[in-house]
Design a protein around this nucleic acid. Structure first.
Lengths: 225, 225
DNA sequence: CTGCATCCGCCTCGATACTG
DNA sequence: CAGTATCGAGGCGGATGCAG
């Protein structure tokens, strides 16, 4: 028990930050909590390869550091859950930045790779190019496997949200593996459509604006209209 | 030798990114290279506790992944150095963001903690509040131990640079440990001055603008003028 | 002397089994 | 369902060796 936790012993913000969230699996736990509270079992299920003792250790430590908190999701002690604290939520910008940066390293999909539809939500948020927002006020809906989320463009700002859009200008239906491959630019939206793995509803112009907003190559699609 | 490198096997940008820069020490190596090319021995000296084999492994892997490149710093093969590639340089925004986030975890300084003056350069860059830029065009110079760097405010933009300022509106002279403590808000500029660990030259108004730009509490200092 | 490679003890990690 | 206990494997840390 006197085994002291390993840290860098550097008087520096980055090193101190990495002492908290730099260990293996930790930032992936944070990612899971970035879409809302989750139960222990859900975390375990979406992080295959992570030992249950490690998850318990990480959650306990993150709780001590005020990055994560235990919460009674509804009712009296029915089932506990974990959620990000305000301090944990402040990690969002650069978790998204790192997710965007890492897209370049996403290779061909391998049989024993894990894919989860809600990761697509973060992928979209990390790909959003605020500088590409137009003055069209509209919403784009995504149905990745069984997850549904949307982009809302309003008042010169684009933001993501979970759940269906009220009046979607486009609806994209796709499986999660294909979705990530498009984000990683290993597949264009056009080829995904032609191979039947992606379905796009709505008017063409809206689809083009959506692709541009995400920095995706819509050229082929545009040429085919 | 056939020991395959450990990775997350998740089809996700964040996981793929962490497979590249998520291992122990890696992001600290990147930090060291963010101030320009460095030699193997310099890296080793500024990362105490890191084994020489680990540094060699990390550098080799980062080179393979096009995050880092070997350069002939001057002349024919005299001494090699490592520097960030364009891909590695794209890590800067969220390395800085994490450095800023981690400042909250910087505790009291401990005898066997390592401190390096050039980390102050990154601390300043991470603390810069672009929204606090005024229309005063001026420069602030910092002399942290033997390192000299500056902030340049010009055209509504603030940016950091190494080396002395041509016409500093303020010169701050301080040791590196004190510098980090001020950044971590464990010490106000005023108390640091009163204990003789910080010297501030230049007109008071410029000092106040500099503090505000870095989000530091200048209230005490202002009250004492 | 710098830039690594090799070797070895230890501690973290990952998988399974077990308990409230 | 939510963790705790246990143990083998392997990444890490420190010392040392060696080549250019």
């Amino acid at each position: 028990m006197t085994t002291t936790k390993r840290n860098y012993h550097q008087y520096c913000g980055l090193a101190s930050g990495l002492d908290v969230i730099g260990e293996r699996w930790t930032l992936l736990v944070v990612r899971e909590l970035m879409m809302g509270p989750r139960h222990y079992g859900e975390l375990l299920a979406d992080l295959p390869g992570m030992g249950t003792n490690l998850l318990a250790d990480r959650l306990k430590f993150l709780t001590e550091q005020d990055v994560v908190r235990r919460v009674d999701v509804k009712g009296t002690g029915s089932r506990l859950a974990y959620e990000l604290t305000e301090r944990g939520a402040r990690l969002r910008p650069f978790v998204l930045g790192l997710a965007r940066w890492g897209l370049d390293f996403v290779g061909e999909i391998h049989p024993d790779d894990t894919v989860r539809p809600h990761w697509g939500f973060l992928a979209v948020e990390s790909m959003l190019r605020q500088e590409a927002v137009t003055d069209h006020e509209e919403q784009y809906e995504f149905r990745v496997d069984d997850e549904v989320f949307r982009i809302e463009v309003s008042g010169g700002q684009a933001k993501t949200a979970r759940g269906p859009a009220s009046e979607p200008a486009t609806v994209a239906k796709v499986d999660s593996a294909t979705f990530v491959q498009i984000g990683a630019k290993r597949l264009t939206p056009l080829t995904a459509m032609l191979t039947g793995r992606l379905t796009l509803d709505g008017e063409v112009e809206a689809v083009l604006r959506c692709c541009d907003l995400l920095g995706l190559d819509a050229g082929d699609y545009a040429a085919g209209r």
